[in-house]
Design a protein around this nucleic acid. Structure first.
Lengths: 302, 302
DNA sequence: CTCTGTGATACCTGGTGGGTATCACCCGGT
DNA sequence: ACCGGGTGATACCCACCAGGTATCACAGAG
């Protein structure tokens, strides 16, 4: 009877101290691996305490998160929700730690932080970035700006988990969901071909034409860690892609500003029907930093 | 020498398991109270362990968060950052717990959750809300929608900490920052006066005229828990305001849809220069729920 | 110069996070 | 049908740390 009361009290307790960050890390590890052993290994711990921690979490939430099958485990509906929401919470906590550390710097004094980390897709918007940094540096009281090159579409994660304070993003490739942003520039897209290819002489091309060139498959970029299916080569960095195009092995589609880094062996042909690429400056919606506001103001005035 | 190494190892450890939710709760309590004793009381614990916890947190982050003065404490720059980011992380964690519990329901099975909590400013957009609920209920496979009336401008917090899954918001009163949203309706604003007042006979009014009526000060609503300065009465709920207007003690400005709940003793006069009120449906940017998508689709089709 | 109120320190205790060893179970192979 | 490998769960133990109580150090007000 008494244990019953205790259990009920636990189940109905306020949704405050129910979820610890450590537990979220444990759960996401298990939910991603779908295997207690591997998850424990990834977490650098033994399997039994991990099992217990998950059990305790389920008991406290009063919800079944995992369905234990004979062969591994699978997520319940509630488990999928917790995985999704938990990742957001983990990002938020990591962001809090990182940004606090950065703000503290050497002494923890220093008022509002005077340093900004700007995430940019490596190699993209060179020209714009250059103008922005120059213009901002000329502002009175400008903060120091650290430019952090990021992988394809990784700026979102960097903004979410605090590795960056502000980012240049490219719609429609990046999702602006959950961030505040200002539009900066709009540009068309071009097909980048080997200079000697017959199509390189064309004044314009369509997406359909580029996607179906005999012997010249479209290059495949990783999006969120996954490569789209297709015959083309899997691209990891820009230099590799540039070389493969120059060698006549592939073709790729880029915003017009990519002309800046083309080689002599490359040819660029405007695309008529590719969606426009809109460059935004984006930042976490709750940001209140003066330095950030200054950078954004400078960017929109360029 | 060895302790030095240990300290450095702690300071440079990954920004992963550095921040626990419990510590964030402690810190925000202290940062809000600016007083260890009161904060400890609010947290339901003794003061010494709280002091130690904050010290440990500062040591782990390698950052000074609070400046201890003889009389109370004050925040450092890093402390302000942590307060701001920490609140976001606390909200995210609370949201994860709440939404998981809701998704779990009785058995934890049930696939994707089939229940939505919709936050609405109490009394606002009655007509729209009614049509939305009716239309959505008629959809095949519609989830159960729980309507959660919220205080003035409180929908944002409810969405952030998981008390609600989706909300009707009213720009420019609510900030849509950090959420995904779709625009639903736009409406002008009206001044609501006592029926007998001379100005009630006017066809239109301007904001300046309404703000400066002799003997009839503008009512003041709480925004984020604070009342704007001014001579008018402080308003807590709509009924109270309606009564004060009817009694000829105050005047207020509302979206046109407020006509729905006016009394016979009230008069409504359109405002010529008040900003339009745009009603949005908004939800957390990372939401992936099918039920939510259905509700949003229904709303935009109204 | 005390008295009051602040946060910090010392020290103790119980709960729990984590480890090792082992179990219970289901499956697949022979 | 039986056994072996691999799954997650259980039993048990230890160490650590979160939290409590008692007390200190210190500054300001009277």
């Amino acid at each position: 009877m008494e244990t019953q009361d205790i259990q009920e009290a636990q189940e109905t307790q306020e949704t405050q101290d129910i979820l610890e960050i450590r537990e979220l890390r444990y759960f996401t590890a298990v939910a991603e691996e779908l295997h207690f052993g591997r998850a424990a290994e990834r977490l650098g711990m033994a399997q039994p305490p991990l099992s217990r921690a998950i059990q305790r979490l389920e008991r406290r939430l009063g919800v079944c998160l995992l369905r234990r099958n004979r062969r591994g485990v699978c997520l319940t509906g509630a488990g999928e929700i917790l995985l999704q929401e938990g990742r957001a919470a983990l990002d938020a906590a990591a962001a809090a730690a990182r940004r606090t550390r950065r703000a503290g710097g050497a002494d923890g004094r220093g008022g509002p932080r005077n340093r900004l980390v700007l995430a940019v897709k490596a190699g993209a918007s060179h020209e714009l970035l250059h103008r922005l940094l120059d213009a901002y540096a000329a502002e009175p009281g400008a903060a120091e700006v650290e430019v952090l090159p990021s992988g394809t579409c990784e700026q979102e994660g960097m903004l979410r988990d605090g590795r960056a304070d502000v980012a240049l993003m490219h719609a429609p490739f990046n999702s602006l969901a959950g961030f505040d942003s200002e539009e900066l520039t709009t540009e068309g897209q071009i097909a980048v071909l080997p200079a000697g290819h017959p199509l390189a002489a064309r004044r314009t091309l369509s997406l359909a034409e580029v996607g179906d060139i005999p012997g010249l498959p479209l290059a495949r970029w990783a999006r969120h860690g996954r490569f789209p299916p297709g015959p083309g080569p899997e691209i990891h960095d820009q230099t590799q892609l540039a070389q493969l195009i120059a060698l006549g092995r592939t073709v790729a589609v880029f915003p017009e500003s990519a002309r800046a880094w083309l080689w002599a062996e490359h040819a660029a042909v405007p695309l008529t029907d590719a969606p426009s690429v809109v460059t935004h400056i984006a930042w976490p919606a709750h940001s209140r930093s003066l330095a950030l506001a200054g950078l954004v103001r400078t960017a929109t005035r360029l």
